[in-house]
Design a protein around this nucleic acid. Structure first.
Length: 280
DNA sequence: TGTTATGTTGCCAT
DNA sequence: TATGGCAACATAAC
């Protein structure tokens, strides 16, 4: 479900309603594992009575900064969902954690598949997130040169490399396929065989598809909703993702799109527009 | 009714 | 270190 645009959409939808609010109570439901092995009572003791200082996003992580320098780290994985409801609203389906926000609201974390986590990092642990992810693709520091240097020593298929969070933070299966289509690069191309022009094209395409995803407030193919329960619109903007299996026509050339499993992930592309050794 | 796929990541083996 | 396979889990769609 959630890649950079979706995660950022959730964060933005919650930010103003969380900042400055006190965490007043906390309830862990049946799935205690949501806390990543932490003890519910200890977790609660560290978090309750703290105030939300700010929210941030790093890759696919939502970071909720508390006033003591500690951080609530939320990862939605495949089917995780954050929603801000009134405190007396019914428990939502698959709810694993409810966090009281001020006197009236509660932030619910729900996750059908139980892969997602909400962990609390002490101030001295807050840096561990940084060691898990690479550059932010929409930041000014993510240049074509930065991308070049991380691709040139890798031999794996570019599709798989784009999914590596240490190479670029926040790209998932949808935006990887969309970026490769825009850059006209075959997903199986070994990363270190891309030409300078192809890397520049890919760099531009990555930023473009992520920005569009963000402007459309995320891609809602099945599960995705923002913090207010709103669906995104970017599913209408997808050019190839999900279309290869049915052989839908390429929006550029009309050829049937193709489907491949690459690194265990479904991959959709145009065999004509995205050729393996395209020289400019 | 059974099988298969699902947008993520970490662990394990090579 | 880089890469690939697979498991974690629940459900919908075939």
């Amino acid at each position: 479900m959630p890649e950079l645009p979706e995660v950022e959409t959730v964060r933005i939808s919650l930010h103003d309603k969380l900042v400055g609010q006190e965490i007043t109570w906390l309830k862990v439901r049946e799935f205690i594992g949501v806390l990543g092995g932490d003890d519910p009572a200890a977790f609660s003791a560290r978090v309750v009575n703290r105030t939300v200082a700010s929210t941030r996003r790093r890759g696919k992580y939502i970071l909720i900064d508390l006033d003591d320098g500690s951080v609530l780290v939320v990862h939605l994985r495949m089917t995780g969902n954050l929603s801000l409801l009134h405190r007396h609203d019914e428990k939502v389906r698959f709810e694993h954690l409810a966090i009281g926000i001020g006197d009236e609201m509660s932030l619910r974390f729900a996750d059908q598949r139980k892969f997602g986590r909400v962990v609390h990092l002490l101030p001295q642990e807050a840096g561990t997130i940084e060691s898990k992810v690479g550059p932010e693709p929409l930041s000014a520091s993510f240049s074509a040169e930065v991308l070049t240097s991380s691709l040139q020593r890798r031999t794996g298929p570019i599709k798989s490399i784009l999914l590596n969070q240490k190479v670029i933070a926040g790209i998932g299966n949808i935006y990887a396929d969309e970026a490769l289509f825009r850059a006209r690069i075959h997903p199986l191309t070994p990363a270190n065989e891309l030409s300078v022009l192809q890397i520049h094209s890919l760099h531009r395409a990555i930023r473009q598809v992520l920005r569009e995803g963000l402007l459309n407030r995320g891609t809602s193919i099945s599960h995705f909703r923002d913090g207010a329960g709103q669906e995104g619109e970017n599913q209408d903007n997808l050019k190839v993702y999900g279309k290869g299996r049915i052989g839908a026509p390429c929006p550029r050339c009309g050829q049937p799109l193709q489907f491949l499993v690459i690194g265990g992930r479904s991959s959709h592309f145009c065999p004509k527009c995205q050729r393996s050794s395209l020289t400019y």
